[in-house]
Amino acid sequence: AVSDRLIGRKSVVMEAISPQNSGLVKVDGETWRATSGTVLDVGEEVSVKAIEGVKLVVEKLE
């Protein structure tokens, strides 16, 4: 599936994300709604860990 190619990809937070609120990330020039178990600020680099419905699950790059 097209979405499977996103797992493991680097992306950049475009709208802040917290455990309570989804935000936005940009992956390969496309904007996606995303969630995370931690707070992520605009501009942080993250990695796509999973896809749940139409949202990406991301975490901060170490």
Rank of each mutant, 00 (worst) to 15 (best):
K49D: 03
K55T: 15
E59R: 04
V54M: 14
G37E: 14
K49T: 13
R5A: 10
L56R: 01
E44L: 08
S47Y: 15
D41L: 13
T35E: 07
V57C: 07
G23Y: 09
V58Q: 00
E59P: 00
Q20M: 12
E52M: 12
T35V: 14
L61G: 07
G53T: 03
S3Y: 13
G29E: 08
V46C: 15
L6T: 03
L6G: 02
K10A: 08
K10M: 11
G43K: 04
P19W: 04
G23P: 00
Q20A: 11
K26D: 09
G53I: 03
S36P: 00
S3W: 13
K60Q: 06
V12G: 03
L40H: 12
L6E: 04
E59T: 08
V25E: 00
K10V: 14
V27Y: 04
V42A: 07
V25D: 01
D4V: 10
N21L: 11
T35N: 06
L40F: 08
L56D: 01
G43Q: 03
G8I: 04
K10L: 14
S36F: 01
R5N: 09
S47D: 06
L40A: 04
E59M: 09
K60A: 08
D41M: 13
V48K: 00
L61K: 07
A50K: 08
S3N: 11
T35I: 14
K10Y: 12
L24W: 12
V48Q: 01
S11C: 15
D41Y: 13
E30Q: 12
R5G: 09
R9H: 09
V42T: 05
G29S: 07
V42W: 05
L24G: 03
Q20C: 15
S18T: 13
E62Y: 13
L61S: 08
I51F: 07
I17V: 06
S11A: 15
L24F: 10
R33I: 15
R9G: 07
V46I: 04
E15R: 08
D28F: 07
G8V: 05
P19S: 06
V13N: 02
E15A: 12
V58I: 03
K26I: 14
D28K: 03
E59D: 08
T31I: 15
L6W: 06
R5S: 10
M14E: 07
E44F: 06
G53N: 05
V57Q: 05
V39A: 11
D28T: 02
E52W: 11
D41R: 13
K55L: 15
V39L: 10
E62W: 12
S47H: 12
V46G: 04
L61D: 08
A34C: 03
P19I: 05
S22L: 11
E30A: 09
E52V: 13
A50E: 06
L24A: 09
G43T: 01
V39Q: 11
V54W: 14
L61R: 07
V48L: 01
V58P: 01
S18M: 06
K49L: 13
V46Y: 00
K26P: 01
V12Q: 06
K60M: 05
S18Y: 07
E62C: 13
V57A: 05
V54D: 15
T31L: 15
Q20I: 09
V54S: 14
L24I: 10
V25F: 00
E15N: 06
L24V: 10
G29W: 04
E44K: 04
V54E: 15
E45K: 09
S11V: 15
Q20K: 10
S3D: 09
T35M: 10
R5W: 10
K55D: 08
V25S: 01
V12L: 09
V48G: 00
K10Q: 09
D41A: 13
Q20D: 11
G53Q: 03
V13Q: 01
E52L: 12
V2Q: 11
K26H: 09
I51T: 05
G23Q: 01
K26M: 15
E44V: 09
E59S: 07
N21R: 15
M14R: 03
K26Q: 12
D41H: 13
S18Q: 04
V42L: 06
V42I: 10
G23M: 02
S36R: 00
S47M: 15
L61W: 14
L61H: 08
V27N: 02
V54G: 15
E45G: 05
E45Y: 13
Q20N: 13
V2I: 13
E30S: 08
W32Y: 15
T38E: 14
E30W: 08
E45N: 08
E45R: 09
